[in-house]
Simulated scan of single mutants.
Amino acid sequence: MDFLQFLSWACIVFTVGMFSTGLTDLKKMRATQSADSVQFLPFLTTCLNNLGWLYYGILKKDGTLMVVNVIGASLQILYIVTYFHYTKDKRRVSAQTLAMAGVLGVAWVYFGVMLPHGETQLSQLGLFCSVFTVSMYLSPLLEIIRTRSVERLSFSLTVATFFTSASWTLYGLQLQDYYIMVPNTPGIVTSLIRFFLFWRFGAVSQDKPSYKLIQQI
């Protein structure tokens, strides 16, 4: 097995493991018959991110990107359907889901119809996916700094994010694909910062009566 193939498998294993942390929320919703303690928006944004990278992988004919993001999008759809089943605020959830569908529609028209096929289409889609991925890495970090608490962040998800972003960074480096490498580099940095913040604010959060495990990517 050459190094690129090893990295490909590492990306698949670590990324699917990261997406699977949402199963904790799914089990919680089924156990409590409620979605009150779970955030819905991360499921939507992660699904949108998966679909964007899936399209990028299809255009590049990259099997690793396609496999990972088909699995990721399927899991996010499962979480979305489960959340909708258990939530009391179905109107809000429906509105946010329709908004995401609208964004997908506009993106499809722009990237699939308006742009000329080829390098321009690939580079602009890669740039869009890269910016979106970086924002997803930064959002939980900003939430911790704002609240000075880690109780709304999963430590296991932070570990998974670190290994996932590291494997994708090396994979992108091997392919010389900066749209894969560059957005995942902040994932390594933000994960290390989140480890520090867990150490810094963890003692405060442990005094809380409960620990909320909520998926944020």
Rank of each mutant, 00 (worst) to 15 (best):
Q5P: 00
F6W: 15
F6S: 05
S8H: 03
A10S: 01
A10C: 10
T15D: 12
S20W: 13
T21W: 02
G22M: 04
L23I: 13
T24Q: 13
D25G: 02
K28F: 11
R30S: 12
A31V: 01
Q33M: 02
Q33T: 14
S34Y: 10
S37M: 02
V38S: 07
F40K: 03
L41W: 04
T46N: 13
C47Q: 01
L48S: 00
N49G: 10
N49Q: 11
W53V: 00
W53R: 05
L54W: 04
Y56A: 14
I58A: 13
L59V: 07
K60Q: 02
K61W: 10
K61S: 13
T64Y: 15
L65C: 12
L65M: 15
V68Q: 01
V70S: 14
I71W: 07
I71Q: 09
L78V: 02
Y79E: 11
V81W: 04
V81G: 02
T82Y: 11
Y83F: 14
H85I: 04
H85N: 14
T87A: 07
K88S: 08
K88C: 12
K88Y: 01
K90R: 05
R91V: 06
R91D: 14
R92L: 06
V93C: 04
V93I: 02
V93H: 12
S94F: 11
Q96A: 01
Q96L: 09
Q96C: 09
L98M: 09
M100A: 12
A101T: 09
V103N: 13
V103P: 00
A107K: 05
W108D: 10
W108S: 07
Y110Q: 07
F111N: 08
V113L: 11
L115P: 01
L115Q: 09
L115W: 05
P116R: 06
H117F: 15
H117D: 08
G118S: 01
L122G: 15
L122F: 09
L125A: 13
L127I: 04
L127S: 03
F128T: 15
I144L: 06
I145Y: 02
R146F: 00
T147K: 14
R148N: 02
S154T: 11
F155Y: 05
S156R: 06
S156D: 12
L157T: 11
L157Q: 01
T158G: 13
A160V: 06
T161C: 13
T161I: 13
T161P: 00
F162H: 01
S165F: 11
S167E: 05
W168R: 09
W168V: 07
L170G: 12
Y171N: 09
Q176F: 08
Y178M: 08
Y179S: 10
P183M: 03
N184A: 00
N184G: 11
T185A: 08
P186I: 10
G187K: 09
V189I: 04
V189W: 09
S191F: 01
L192F: 00
L192D: 03
L197R: 11
W199H: 08
R200I: 04
V204S: 12
V204H: 03
V204K: 05
K208L: 11
K208S: 08
P209Q: 12
I214D: 06
Q216H: 09
